[in-house]
Simulated assay, not measured.
Amino acid sequence: MTVHIGAKPGQIAETVLLPGDPKRAEWAAHSFLEGVELVNDVRGMLGYTGTWNGHRVTIHGSGMGMSSLSIYANELIRDYGAKTLVRIGSCGAMQAHVALRDVVIAMTASSISTPSSAILREVNFAPCADWGLLHAAVTAAKARGVNPHVGGIYSSDTFYDERPDLTEQMTRHGTLAVEMEAAELYTLAARHGARALAILTVSDHLQTGEALDSTARESSFGDMVEIALMAAFPE
Score class of each variant (00 low, 15 high):
134 L>P: 09
47 G>D: 06
194 A>N: 06
16 V>S: 03
143 A>R: 13
191 R>W: 06
116 S>T: 14
162 E>V: 01
89 G>E: 01
111 S>F: 13
111 S>C: 12
3 V>S: 12
172 R>V: 04
95 Q>G: 03
190 A>L: 02
221 F>E: 13
226 E>M: 12
56 R>Y: 04
43 R>Q: 10
14 E>F: 09
69 L>E: 14
88 I>H: 03
145 G>F: 13
126 A>T: 04
181 E>I: 05
121 R>H: 14
1 M>I: 03
100 L>H: 11
10 G>I: 02
158 T>R: 13
172 R>N: 10
141 A>P: 14
172 R>E: 14
225 V>G: 00
94 M>V: 00
20 G>A: 11
82 A>I: 04
73 A>K: 02
130 D>P: 07
4 H>A: 01
123 V>R: 15
49 T>N: 02
120 L>N: 13
42 V>A: 01
43 R>G: 07
234 P>D: 01
210 E>A: 15
187 T>S: 11
11 Q>F: 06
41 D>R: 09
70 S>G: 14
162 E>W: 05
77 I>W: 00
52 W>K: 01
109 A>I: 06
63 G>R: 09
95 Q>D: 05
95 Q>E: 02
33 L>C: 07
182 A>Y: 13
172 R>T: 11
140 A>V: 07
29 A>P: 14
61 G>L: 10
194 A>H: 07
179 E>F: 02
17 L>W: 05
46 L>W: 10
10 G>W: 03
195 R>L: 10
78 R>I: 07
124 N>W: 10
151 G>P: 11
202 V>C: 05
50 G>M: 11
212 L>P: 07
124 N>V: 09
140 A>R: 07
119 I>S: 12
128 C>W: 01
102 D>F: 02
38 L>M: 12
43 R>V: 07
37 E>M: 12
182 A>R: 12
68 S>M: 08
80 Y>I: 02
170 M>Y: 15
216 A>Q: 15
24 R>L: 05
235 E>H: 13
92 G>D: 01
12 I>Y: 05
234 P>A: 00
55 H>W: 05
105 I>C: 01
96 A>Q: 07
194 A>L: 08
191 R>S: 02
5 I>N: 03
99 A>G: 08
145 G>R: 11
54 G>W: 11
132 G>W: 03
170 M>N: 12
110 S>Y: 14
157 D>S: 08
47 G>C: 03
87 R>D: 00
168 E>P: 02
